[in-house]
Design a binder for these strands. Structure first.
Lengths: 257, 257
DNA sequence: GAGTGGTCTAGACCACGAA
DNA sequence: TCGTGGTCTAGACCACTCG
């Protein structure tokens, strides 16, 4: 049974590796070797303390490390269960800000041509996951560069669920995304965004509005904004393929650093 | 100065809120109020212990909580610095597996029509970020459903950097992605994927191969696979818009749970 | 040298889950 | 009821940073 001074002295002899990290490593090693197997229980803390001659604090630090790596889960009254033999890793695309979803829109302006309260018909109610009779605010317009004469960038349709559609700051020319107006006005935070990208040919009025030849290739991007389980806004944009492509990057991430 | 029993007793009176979480909350509140301001230092642990009548362990738990939320950074010999007045949050698209990038490909087969070692010309060397004279393995084919007579799903071109192109398991019909063959064969792990989605019209030979009318809309998806800084594989796929769209979902994530 | 956070010990009581 | 992890205390030595 080492005295405090002895334990500290032991650290002094090997100052470079904290004992809880040593233990974390060796636990990882043993788990990789299937002992205990995935689904099994780690020995209780007090048993590890006794077996290794370490305090509960140090043992807990090691176990918490493996928890933060996603390898273990703990439950009082049950024990510490192995859920993965290796650190859980995933690929993530990460944004500080939803604005990154449509970074192209920065420095552009949206000229609004239509604003109306609507009750979605058959086609639209699918897009808006809307119950019959629900009302939405529909805003349509063209996204331009900063100069009014710049080539149009996209045709945009936006739909805001009625409970969130009283937005005083809605102006003729929108310079900020509508979801930020919603977040400000109602004190909520968008928690989920779903996005779908489709290819399409740009014809007729759309081709004219975007000043591209009829039959040109384009992208249609549909974004649905959720606050918790509630769909609050849907936007669709049609972009000429010649002026737009969608880029993204995924990194391998390991939980817990 | 509460005795251990007193402290425990206090817990018993308010058993639902551990004191370190209380402290974490009140520290967050004070930081939001600018005290200390972002960039400033928190009081030292021992001062907090004394001021609050708590042990260092409990204080450390609270501070570590705010660290894991990205609000504080600590450095021995310096102190605890406020780096953000609110928990750092971001939106992430997360995948367990790169296969999720092309989930549509599951249950499909790739019929290989071309396999050749090439030296990229001007256009291709841009796509492959390739130095003059570098060699790549080029594989082209058509992705089908499981039945040989199923409609073609996509036209695929794949380029593998020469150092990673000796892949014994490359067969006439590929059922697994090439990057997994690379990972297995060379014991590496893809750490980054960049993806670009473009709209295009499908004409000529492509339209014929995909059995769509010339001039149809389509999507072109380019994926670049990196191992560390090294580009190891690039794939491009052309998908008829009528049979394909690209969906993704972003969640608001708060660091540290 | 003084003070910071990092590490560690030896105890203790509690809430929870299972037998 | 018993053992688990969750919480907490009082005290200690260390490595590091700074004046």
């Amino acid at each position: 049974m080492p005295e405090p001074t002895d334990a500290s002295h032991a650290d002094a002899l090997a100052p470079s590796t904290p004992r809880h990290l040593d233990l974390a490593r060796s636990l990882m090693q043993e788990i990789r070797n299937g002992h205990p197997p995935v689904g099994g229980l780690l020995p209780p803390e007090l048993e590890l303390c006794e077996r290794l001659g370490m305090s509960r604090y140090a043992v807990r630090q090691a176990v918490q490390k493996l928890c933060s790596l996603g390898m273990l889960t703990r439950q009082a009254g049950v024990g510490t269960r192995v859920v993965s033999a290796t650190p859980v890793s995933r690929y993530v695309q990460s944004m500080d800000d939803l604005g990154d979803l449509a970074r192209y829109a920065q420095g552009t302006r949206l000229a609004v041509s239509t604003r109306a309260r609507i009750t979605p018909g058959d086609d639209l109610s699918e897009l808006l996951r809307s119950a019959p009779g629900e009302k939405w605010l529909h805003i349509a317009g063209v996204r331009h560069g900063r100069e009014r004469k710049d080539e149009p960038i996209a045709l945009v349709d936006m739909y805001v669920a009625a409970p969130y559609s009283k937005l005083p700051k809605l102006a003729e020319e929108l310079t900020v995304p509508i979801y930020t107006l919603i977040e400000e006005q109602f004190g909520v935070k968008v928690t989920r965004v779903e996005q779908e990208i489709q290819g399409l040919t740009i014809d007729g009025d759309n081709a004219e509005a975007l000043r591209v030849p009829a039959g040109s290739a384009g992208l249609r991007i549909v974004r649905s904004y959720y606050v918790g389980p509630t769909l609050v806004e849907v936007t669709t944009g049609i972009h000429p393929a010649s002026r737009f492509s969608y880029r993204m990057s995924f990194q391998l991430a390991r939980a817990g650093g």
